[in-house]
Amino acid sequence: MPLRDGDRAGHLELNRRYWDEEAAAAHGPLARDHWARTEIRWGLWGTPESEVSVLPGEMTGARAVELGCGTAYVSAGLARAGARPVGIDLSERQLATAHAMQEEFGLRFPLVLGDAERLPFADGAFDLAVSEYGASLWCAPRRWIPEAARVLAPGGQLVFLRYSPLFALCARPGEQASAALLRPLFGMDRLDWGGRVEFVLPHGEMLRLLRSHGFVVEDLIEVRAPRPAHREYAEVSAGWARRWPSEEIWKARLAG
């Protein structure tokens, strides 16, 4: 996918290359386990939806879009719950894995190669927008959040999971999160990790951004790693994430 006009810093192209050339090889083998889950589980620590309750209680027939769907296991969970999901991602390799999982599990829904900062969908086309470490981390929030608002119908719900600002303050490329603050909070937005770019806005800025596009924030869940955790990660240990939140889930509704 070529770099589009207006992508001043080139993060879309950089991230596309990262996922197509590096990350997909590591994440692809996990797809089968994720698709086999009987319940949607969120984030690094596999937090079950029954514990956080961020999705609508009744999803039968709900029009849903997963922004930055990757291998689309969240969309698969939405489909099993009765929703009508569409997944969009800028990585051809990730979508190829998603198509393979659809064949294996016999579950069909549209998968679109595209950019969550410029969605190819009509205004008000969806009742629910979801992002789990997709657009919520890899896209510029001042671009993808207005697009999410545009494609949601009045009263539609936005649920997204991202790294917590506290984790971002303590993170350094190639190392596990530290117990010390390594960067300033003020002015934090874009995090350059060499071969990829991630975005983490502080809480106040994120809240104001959501409100400016018509969202009412209904919940903010700071996720704690369970004991015992099913695994450790190169970027953060379970011990760290039991003391401080490494990730968080936002739940917001479009006023209508």
Rank of each mutant, 00 (worst) to 15 (best):
L95M: 06
L107E: 07
W42S: 00
P141Q: 07
G134K: 03
H34D: 11
P29Y: 07
E248K: 05
R4N: 03
S212H: 09
T60R: 14
W240H: 03
D33H: 12
W193C: 03
S178R: 01
A234G: 07
L161K: 04
E222K: 07
S53L: 11
L210I: 00
D123K: 13
F109M: 03
E104Q: 08
P29V: 02
S178H: 11
P48W: 03
G106C: 04
M206H: 08
L3R: 15
R150C: 06
I145Y: 13
E218R: 11
A64I: 04
W144R: 02
F126N: 04
P184L: 07
G134H: 10
E232A: 04
E117T: 13
G6I: 00
Q94C: 02
V159P: 05
A72Q: 00
F121D: 14
G156A: 08
Y73H: 14
V52T: 06
S91P: 10
L119P: 07
R224I: 12
L128F: 06
A26N: 05
H11W: 15
D189R: 09
I145S: 09
T97D: 10
D127H: 14
A153N: 00
L158P: 11
R224W: 08
V52N: 03
R150A: 02
A72M: 01
R4P: 00
H34W: 14
R211W: 13
H27L: 15
R253F: 13
F186M: 10
R8K: 10
M59E: 06
A148S: 05
G114Q: 08
A125W: 03
A23D: 10
R196N: 04
A9T: 12
A23T: 03
A135H: 05
L14K: 15
A79K: 12
S246H: 13
A9R: 14
Y73E: 15
R196V: 01
A241G: 00
L111P: 12
T38V: 06
R162W: 04
R80Y: 00
A153R: 15
A168P: 07
L44T: 05
G155A: 08
P2L: 04
L111I: 12
G124K: 05
W42G: 09
W42H: 05
R242E: 01
R253C: 02
R231L: 00
Q176G: 15
G214Y: 12
R142F: 08
E66Y: 14
L207V: 12
L220S: 04
L169T: 07
V74N: 11
A98K: 12
D20L: 01
A255Y: 01
L12V: 09
S136H: 03
A96R: 08
A83G: 08
D192A: 08
D127F: 12
C69P: 14
L182D: 09
D192V: 06
G156W: 13
G68V: 05
F126D: 03
P184E: 15
E66S: 13
S164R: 04
S164C: 05
P245Y: 10
S212F: 08
D89A: 14
A234F: 02
L95V: 13
M188R: 11
A135Y: 02
P48V: 04
R80W: 00
A36S: 13
E21S: 10
P120H: 10
L254A: 11
A26T: 08
H230A: 15
